[in-house]
Every structure is written in C-alpha cells, then in structure tokens.
Computed example of a mutant assay.
Amino acid sequence: MFREELHEDGILEIVIDRPPVNAFSIGLLHDLAVRLGRVAGEAEVRTVVLRADGRGFCGGGDVKEVEALPGFEGILGQSSGSMTLSLAVLQCAVPVIAGIHNYCVGVGALVAGSADIIVASRGTRFVMAEIDNGATAGAVQALKLMPEKRVRAAMMTADPVLAEELHALGTIYRLVETAEAVAAEARAVASRVASKSPQAMRRLKTSLGNTTKAHEMMALYRAEMSYTYELNILGEASAGRTAFIEGKRGSYAD
C-alpha cells in the first residue's frame, strides 16, 4: 500500500499507493506509523518525503472497511490508527515534508497538520468531513493548518479549504501549479533540509517541542474521540457511513 526509496542525499521518500482514491485502511495507518518510528534508529535518513500516487493524496479513512468489521472494531481501529499515525508524523526523528495533490480528506488533513513542511498543488482541497461520518476528531491537527474560526467553519460545513488559502496563511510552504510537480518540489525542499547537519537537524526537530506537543495532542485527541465513540454507540455514525457506501452522499475525492 506504500513503497519507499532512500535517495543518496538521505531523503526517505514514502509514496502511498492505494487505488482508487488512497483511502487509508487500518493496516495502512499502522504500517506508516511503524515505518516512521523506525527512522529514529536510521542515521542515514536525514528527512522524509511523504506523498502519494494516483488521483489525490488521501480520500479519508476507509469507510467500507469500518462498516464491514464486526461490532465497533472498525471505528476503534480507524480512530486509534489515525491518532497513532498523526503522532508518528509529529514525533518522527527527522523533518517530514508532506507532498499533497488534488485532495486531502479526513485523516489526510490530520497527517498534513502534523507534518513539518507542506508542499501542495494549486486547487488541492483540504476537507474535514468528520461531521458527515459520525466523527468529531480532527480539530487538534486542523488548528495547525488554519485559525480556530476557520477550523470551526471547515468542520461544521465539511466544505473544502483550498490550498491557495492555506498558502496565504503560511501553512503551505510551496504551492506548485500542477499535481505532477508536487513530487519534484517536495524532494527539492527535502534536499535543502537534508543538506544541513543531520545531528543538528534531529535536535532542532526535538527542540521545536514535538514531544511535548505529542503528549498534549494525545490527551486532546482522546477527548475528541470520546464523542465519536458516543455517536457510534448511538448508531448515528453508521448511518452516515452507510449513506456514503450506498452512493447517497458523494465522495470528497471526486
């Protein structure tokens, strides 16, 4: 579901490839988190580029998988997996550059919010669609992408926030013209970062407070998830996911 390549300059490029829309399964969330965690013991890695092939960066969590699993196994796995991956990006021992193209939905936006630097293509849609899927989590990472009032509007309406707006806010570092240009630009930015002293860069990443922020995020995320679990117990969440699966609600990755 993803491939990786370690370039000569110390860039570890991780490319998500899960057609048709790069929906993140529970297994993918887990495997990406584990891979990022291993970077701490890999001195040859100086920076990570996390991007995707295909139609867009991330179509959200795999709703069909969540509904297919028995009991609450699906929502528990998806929610805890999203939190774990977000924290793995935040706590990665080296800077993580996220290359985003076309769309970045749900957990994709959480991952982008945890990355150190974002490169995106014009017109990319960042969507916090949790309200339509019986979920409440996401504000913790979304606040790293945009101001509080903008987060509220984005989460309450589930309307897309365009990359151009986030670039104007300073959240997106590089805005490129086409989706095809994202990979090259992300590697160029990563190369600039990788050219610095690797020991100094790892210490800089730590000094920016990522470990402290991770503890704060975990507590806040657990509080957010409690309301998501309530909605699932009530059956409200399943109804929203079923409407999506049956085609009564369009995909944000269209």
Rank of each mutant, 00 (worst) to 15 (best):
E73I: 12
I118H: 03
A120I: 01
I117L: 10
Q78I: 13
C58Q: 07
V105E: 02
G61T: 14
A88N: 03
G99H: 08
A93C: 11
A88P: 02
T84D: 05
I75A: 00
G77M: 01
V119W: 05
A120E: 01
G81S: 11
V96W: 07
A120F: 05
V111S: 12
L110F: 15
S86G: 13
G60E: 05
C104N: 15
P95T: 10
Q91V: 03
G106W: 07
V96M: 10
V107D: 09
L76F: 14
P70T: 04
V107Q: 12
A115K: 01
S80L: 15
D116M: 05
A109H: 06
I118K: 05
A112G: 14
G74H: 08
L87C: 03
E73Q: 15
V105S: 03
C58I: 12
V66Q: 11
L85I: 00
G74N: 08
F72S: 15
G77H: 02
F72E: 13
A120M: 03
G113K: 06
D62G: 14
E73K: 14
E73D: 14
P70Q: 02
C58F: 04
A120L: 01
Y103F: 15
K64L: 06
D62E: 14
S80M: 13
V66L: 06
L90V: 03
G71N: 11
I75S: 01
A112I: 13
G113Y: 06
M83C: 10
G61L: 12
Q78E: 09
K64Y: 01
V66C: 07
G59F: 11
I118E: 01
G60I: 05
I118D: 01
D62L: 13
Q78L: 13
S79D: 10
A88C: 02
A68V: 05
G77T: 00
G106N: 06
K64V: 08
Q91F: 00
V63C: 04
V111N: 12
E67H: 07
V105W: 00
V89A: 00
A68E: 06
T84L: 08
V66T: 15
E65H: 03
F72N: 15
A109M: 11
G74A: 10
S82R: 07
L76T: 05
L76G: 01
V107N: 08
G108A: 08
V63A: 07
L87N: 02
G71M: 09
C58D: 08
V111A: 12
C104K: 08
A98C: 14
I100H: 13
G74C: 11
A88V: 03
C58H: 04
V107H: 06
I117M: 06
I100S: 14
I117S: 04
L110D: 14
S86P: 03
V111W: 09
N102I: 01
V105Y: 01
